[in-house]
């Protein structure tokens, strides 16, 4: 069955799924060699996994839809998941495309094509929910395309600027 390496808040756990759910709906899992019984709602979308029971401990949860963090009454913890049965590790996404993180209005464009930018440098200001949000360059490089003008409305995930 599947073996995963979970890094949560900097601590590593090897998790192995060892059994299908029993008649009570609990799934058997081995964590660092220790057997645990877990129940959770069976949802394909992570947004809707709202609770879990591990042995006798109930949890109220929020799980990021990209599995970058998990939140419970104990706070929010950073997650990293590696499938030990798959040798390839997914590279951290780090391309130079800057997309709209929320729908909104372009208030200002601070760079032009050809300009060199440093990672973290503000490149444009997106206005949404009465707030001006600074979007910054994801990495060092040269601006290759600027797809937007000030005053323009943009949709979620619309490609705004590319850094080559």
């Amino acid at each position: 069955m599947s073996r995963l390496l979970i890094t949560i808040a900097g601590h590593e756990f090897e998790v192995e799924l060892i059994a299908s759910p029993d008649s009570d709906g609990f799934i058997g899992v081995r964590v660092n060699g220790e057997l645990l019984r877990i129940a959770l709602p069976l949802e394909r979308t992570l947004d809707t996994i709202e609770w879990a029971i591990v042995e006798s401990h109930p949890y109220v949860l929020r799980i990021d839809h990209d599995l970058r963090w998990i939140e419970s009454a104990y706070g929010r913890h950073r997650l990293q998941i590696r499938d030990l049965d798959v040798a390839v590790v997914r590279p951290a996404s780090g391309d130079g495309r800057v997309k709209a993180p929320i729908p909104g209005l372009i208030a200002r464009v601070l760079v032009e094509v050809g300009q060199r930018v440093a990672a973290g440098q503000p490149i444009l200001i997106l206005e949404a929910m009465k707030m001006q949000n600074e979007l910054v360059a994801p990495r060092d490089g040269q601006v290759t395309t600027v797809n937007i003008r000030p005053g323009q409305s943009v949709l979620l995930n619309e490609l705004l600027v590319e850094i080559g």
């Binding site: 599947s2 995963l4 979970i6 949560i8 808040a9 601590h11 756990f13 998790v15 799924l17 799934i27 899992v29 964590v31 660092n32 220790e34 645990l36 877990i38 959770l40 069976l42 949802e43 394909r44 979308t45 992570l46 996994i49 879990a52 591990v54 042995e55 401990h57 949890y59 949860l61 799980i63 599995l67 998990i70 419970s72 104990y74 706070g75 929010r76 913890h77 997650l79 998941i81």
Partner: peptide, 23 residues
Amino acid sequence: LPLPPAERLRDLAAIAALAFLQH
């Protein structure tokens, strides 16, 4: 961020693993 007790962190890791597999 304050860390939860070790056993709770272990439980959350196991939950995350199942969520990942389901997903």
